[in-house]
Amino acid sequence: MEKIKVNSSPPFSFNEENLLEAKRILAMYPEDRSKSALLRLLHIAQKQNNGFCSVGVMDYIADFLKIKPIEVYEVATFYTMYHLKPLGKHVFEFCQTATCATVGVEKIIDYTCNKLGIGIGETTHDGLFSIKTVECLGACGYAPMMQLGEDYVEHLTESKIDELIQNLRNQENG
């Protein structure tokens, strides 16, 4: 893997609201076990940082929890929900496993890629949309489906994709 230059990432810190939330979360674990909060704090920090888990974010969390930066890097690179590269504002994360594949998610992915003019793993020029494929999201009964932000969009059809993209674009312009 390509190494990251240390000084290329702007520093990060929690906003006031997230700082309060972080303190609430820390209180869930025994005092000497604050590292337990790591996964959740990374989620919160990544969200604040527009969905990008930068080195700045990771170093801040290490400092916040008083652990070594490498302990955060090890965790952030292990779990797939942390995005180590910047993505679009809205990330379509299509489930491609088992039932979703059985009921035709591949066609929906192709359709979405064509519609947005990007491939899997790419972001539109306006920085609005990214397409990713992910493994089973635990919604097989409602397949095909995808994750969008913190929500699930289920029973996907081509017209549902059209509608969704239109709505998100309108939101942006309105």
């Binding site: 893997m1 190494k3 990251i4 230059k5 240390v6 080195v55 930066p69 490498i70 890097y73 090890e74 690179t77 292990f78």
Partner: peptide
């Protein structure tokens, strides 16, 4: 860092 057969020894940052 990373996982599965992508896992590797690294410092992440130079």
């Amino acid at each position: 860092l990373y996982r599965g057969d992508h896992a590797e020894i690294s410092t992440m940052i130079e």
